[in-house]
């Protein structure tokens, strides 16, 4: 599938209930687009990894700098190589016929 000049921002974050609202809030507050989001805890559950699918455009530098300022964001990496299948086949996550 075509990747439409998108890339992944990989965030390593503290894991507590408010973190996601800081990240999604930043995107809405500053008018950035987010095409996909994938999140899960790692290790003992103290921290999480969040993958954000975003467009590769002139806003990217600002997005990364603003994300780095967030207190609960421990690290930010931009990944150009990724398997985009997970974002485009999200409905396959649920088993067919399941409820």
């Amino acid at each position: 599938m075509e990747t439409k000049n998108q890339l992944i921002i990989e965030l390593h974050v503290n894991n507590h209930p408010g973190v996601m609202s800081h990240i999604t809030g930043l995107f809405s507050r500053r008018g950035y687009n987010m095409e996909g989001i994938l999140c899960g805890t790692i290790g003992e559950g103290e921290t999480s990894i969040i993958y954000l699918l975003v467009a590769e455009d002139e806003k990217l530098e600002q997005i990364v700098l603003q994300l780095k300022k967030l207190y609960d964001v421990l690290d930010v990496k931009v990944r150009k190589n990724y398997d985009h299948a997970v974002f485009y086949n999200i409905e396959k996550l649920l088993a067919k016929g399941g409820v």
């Binding site: 209930p17 408010g18 800081h22 809030g25 507050r29 967030l70 207190y71």
Partner: peptide, 9 residues
């Protein structure tokens, strides 16, 4: 969230 440098609960 959008009007602080950081916030805590």
């Amino acid at each position: 969230v959008p009007i602080t440098k950081h916030n805590f609960l």
